[in-house]
């Protein structure tokens, strides 16, 4: 039975650009390992084709079968985490071990507010605010 874990300091999953993303990873595997990597990457999800880009990688040297290691990364300046109706851009940390197919993923948000920017919420909010000001709504 294999176990992979990613934990950020104070269980944080929201970060501003440039902030430190720190924490620890742990693994417990049945077989000997060649490599263990933690990847910080973004991917898109939605109606169209998915894109993915690995932005930073931390390699853990000489991994034992069972171990825990700390990590420190910096939240990139862009792109921001966002969601619309058609596409979401999602940041994540992923622990990848080889050989093997097991991975562990932790989704996080990176933006100036530290929260995912919700596009249609902004649009609707702006529409309603505008309509209310004009007296055409409600």
């Amino acid at each position: 039975m294999s176990t992979l874990k990613i934990a950020t300091r104070d269980h944080r999953v929201s970060f501003r650009p440039g902030e430190e993303i720190a924490g620890a990873v742990a693994w417990q595997l049945d077989q000997a390992l060649r490599t263990v990597e933690l990847r910080l990457f973004w991917f898109t999800r939605g109606k169209g084709t998915s894109d993915v880009k690995v932005v930073q990688t931390v390699s853990f040297d000489s991994p034992k079968r069972e171990e825990a290691r700390p990590f420190h990364l910096a939240a990139p300046s862009e792109p921001y985490s966002f969601s619309g109706k058609l596409i979401s851009l999602i940041w994540a940390l992923e622990l990848v071990v080889e050989p093997g197919k097991e991975t562990e993923r932790l989704e996080i948000a990176i933006s100036p507010s530290g929260e995912e920017i919700v596009l249609h919420k902004l649009d609707r909010g702006a529409d309603i605010a505008s309509a209310t000001r004009d007296g055409t709504h409600g």
Partner: peptide
């Protein structure tokens, strides 16, 4: 704004 329904996120 709080009452306005928000569409489902792509994610």
């Amino acid at each position: 704004k709080a009452r306005a329904p928000v569409s489902m996120k792509a994610r």
